[in-house]
Write a protein that binds this DNA or RNA. Structure first.
Lengths: 222, 222
DNA sequence: GTATCGAAAATGAGCGCTCATTCATTAAAC
DNA sequence: GTTTAATGAATGAGCGCTCATTTTCGATAC
């Protein structure tokens, strides 16, 4: 059986997805033709359709991988910053308090996420992200993915905030859910502004956010 | 000469633009066909091309009007909130201090802008805005418009912040430009989240922003 | 080792269709 | 009756996608 190896197949799939991601980041989903992806990947048109049944499926795969990447920034990074936490902290449902250990390092971890936006190598990712945002307004499937991602982040952040409030580190009068949404908004806004103009002063922005959030933090916090 | 009245012409133009805006907000620029606009407006295909030379020109007109609308929110609203200011406060260059009178009411005016995002009637505007953001990544002309708008807001806000700092109303250590960018980011993030999900708790969000910015404000401020 | 074979990988010209745009024609205004 | 507004079927360019064909390569025979 002259089938090709699974590794080769996955590599091919990746070639296509990488080419598609580059095209989509450059021109958006609907100004990118399949010919563009074919040209960029160097793979023939027919073969692309052995890996993906349609252009929409390519888009879905790209959005899915972009979304996984974002989710990894949340669970992965904050787990890394807190080695005390078990690293199987990915699961969703009935967990005790996966966030509580993260409380102390939560703000620095958040600021690091903002800093990562300024890294030159994430430029294409930012552009792709904005395209995904727009596409979420059209496609219920993508909308569900994106909203789910925001919700997960929002719940995570709100949990950390609540836990910090219990320790006296933040005023109890703050609405944790709303504050979490504001932090997400700041993240999204920085993404957008940086996608438009890579010369935005990331350091100054992060400092301003720190100056904004810092005064709220009480003695319970490092 | 059986020309039709100018009023009629402008009304026709508006019909086309309104239809286009509705389509673009629903499906994005590149998933909207000219047939869609023709159907939505009830105007024949040929006539549309008497008013706009191409689809790109329709897009440019929509982006232009959306942008003017945003700019009006800034100069118009804050002028309204401060009747003491002369209402020719729109000009750009060497002015003495157009923002100083606005200092006292600046934060409430900003919070009002956030509140306006939550109004149900602005839903289509928000969706269109996100499409414009994405399109700015492709089209240099749209990019210039959008960046110009952000810059104008940024400079305006930074001016207000600096003037408040001089009055002792804000710590002098804050970077006015960076803080202005953060406020813009919050605005953009709320736009985005509300465009995705109209049920976002706007009041809670605005309160959280007020709680975040409030503590910074010193005795010089109301 | 080499030749042979067949199944799957890979190709790319071409299919049907939709798109943006045009223009011969008709309707309406003065 | 003349002029312009308005129509909508027609056009060809370009799209997503297919499929008849060629290439590749592991398995088998000798």
């Amino acid at each position: 059986m002259p089938k090709v190896s699974d590794a080769h197949r996955q590599a091919r799939r990746r070639e296509i997805l990488d080419a598609a991601a580059a095209c989509f980041a450059r021109d958006g989903f609907h100004r990118t033709s399949m010919q563009d992806i074919v040209r960029e990947s160097g793979i023939s048109a027919g073969l692309v359709y052995r890996y993906f049944a349609s252009k929409d499926e390519v888009i879905a795969a790209i959005v899915g991988q972009w979304h996984e990447h974002r989710a990894a920034l949340l669970t992965g990074d904050s787990a890394t910053d807190n080695p005390a936490t078990s690293d199987s902290a990915t699961s969703d449902s009935a967990r005790k308090h996966p966030a509580e250990r993260a409380t102390a390092a939560a703000l620095p971890a958040y600021l690091d996420m903002l800093r990562a936006i300024g890294a030159p190598e994430s430029a294409a990712d930012l552009r792709l992200g904005v395209q995904v945002w727009a596409e979420a307004l059209r496609s219920p499937a993508i909308d569900a993915l994106v909203l789910g991602g925001v919700e997960r982040f929002q719940e995570f952040a709100a949990r950390v905030i609540r836990s910090t409030q219990r320790d006296g580190g933040l005023p109890a009068t703050l609405d944790p859910d709303a504050l979490a949404r504001v932090l997400i908004a700041i993240y999204q806004g920085l993404m957008l502004q940086t996608a438009w103009d890579g010369t935005v002063d990331n350091d100054a922005f992060v400092h301003a956010v720190a100056d904004l959030v810092g005064p709220l933090i009480g003695p319970g916090q490092a």
